[in-house]
Design a protein around this nucleic acid. Structure first.
Lengths: 224, 224
DNA sequence: GTCTATATCGGGATAGAC
DNA sequence: GTCTATCCCGATATAGAC
């Protein structure tokens, strides 16, 4: 029975997240975290050998908590555009209080070699789940995705989402209006392009795009 | 006559850059740097109050050193595509030995609020110069840029370059072949799109794109 | 103004007692 | 599993020599 242990672990993680939210990642020391959780510093290290491990735990927690919200978003009626928008807004809503914290993390985002990067090996499972959300959105949409794009299109949409989230993180306009604007103006184009890409006429263009996706998310990459 | 002082400053900066190259940014301590430059730690701080200041000095140095190479690239005959490629390759060639170092810096790249970000206020001058390179490339090209795109197009190309450089930084394939592939495959599309955008037919699309650029590089943003 | 030597503060991480 | 005490090291400040 690991109930007690689970309890302590949770207590520490929660204290960490609270501090991360309040002050940001770098500004929260392991000492502070332990103190906030009312345990000894060493104990925090017992459960989370590195400060980064707290972040990984955060990722996993987020993923679990967000799942039902995503499912609700996907279950909604509405066209593909609405579904994509809903998926993105689930993240904005959920991460609302964590913008500052995410800002600190996004430093790692560019480096696929870093454990905490959304493109790393270590976050692969979470990433796959994120991509799957868009796969589902496409499947439940009015769009007939041509066979050769079935694999790539969810990845492209996931990347699009990541871009939006990154922009949102650093969007200092009140209520992140600029991000909303960007989403409004770009989403239409994106969906239009997806639709256009399905025309038989577009086959050569599709080939080009697929090549690009292959290079970016290619075998040798840390991304896949 | 500040010759002596200049000398010392240069010595420290050079030592720093050497260590940054060899071990990376975080791994080089001010102690190490001072030692490498054969001066006391305090002196390094006298010239560069924060470690970041060494990086800003690096940016400025790079900018000066790269200028003649850029001019050579722009003077070359060849079509727009060749000119863009040449501009990007100037950076790859120059930064070749600094890939690891740049990797550490690119952590800041996403945050426009950070001094060292290529999108920050503090790096504005350098950024403007980078954008101007593409403006010149366009002016000297066969492409007739429609009036309403004159401002945005160099910015778009600069962003494209930044993307390539970022990809290159983390490209672990030997000789960064994957980046070359990506450049080969994407550059053609980019130029094609630029050309297509000039057709009068495309006016509504242009409007959309300009709106997007406005939002991304908008007034409220840290970027402009 | 230029430089050295030394001190301080704080944070991640660990060893070992209970 | 949990705690206390401590280590190690980095950034940075400062006192004061030249």
């Amino acid at each position: 029975m690991a109930a007690k242990s689970e309890e302590t672990r949770k207590k520490i993680l929660e204290a960490a997240l609270q501090l991360f939210r309040e002050r940001g990642f770098a500004e929260s020391t392991m000492r502070d975290i332990a103190q906030e959780a009312k345990v000894a510093t060493g104990l925090a290290y017992y459960y989370f050998p590195k400060k980064e491990d707290l972040v990984m735990a955060f990722y996993v927690k987020v993923n679990a908590e967000i799942r039902p919200k995503v499912e609700a978003a996907l279950a909604s009626h509405g066209k593909l555009e609405q579904k994509i928008r809903a998926l993105v807004y689930v993240k904005f809503d959920y991460f609302g209080p964590d913008r500052k914290f995410l800002g600190a993390l996004s430093g790692y985002s560019a480096d696929p070699g870093h454990r905490l990067s959304p493109f790393s090996k270590e976050t692969k499972e979470i990433r796959e789940e994120g991509i799957a959300q868009f796969r589902t959105a496409l499947e439940r949409s009015e769009l007939k995705v041509p066979e050769d794009l079935v694999e790539a299109m969810p990845k492209i949409l996931w990347m699009y989402q990541m871009g939006m989230v990154l922009f949102w993180i650093y969007d200092r306009s009140e209520g992140q209006r600029r991000t909303q604007l960007l989403l409004d103006k770009s989403l239409g184009i994106v969906v239009l392009l997806l639709k256009a890409s399905s025309l038989p006429l577009m086959r050569p263009v599709r080939k080009l795009i697929l090549d690009l996706v292959d290079v970016i998310a290619g075998e040798q990459s840390a991304v896949y």
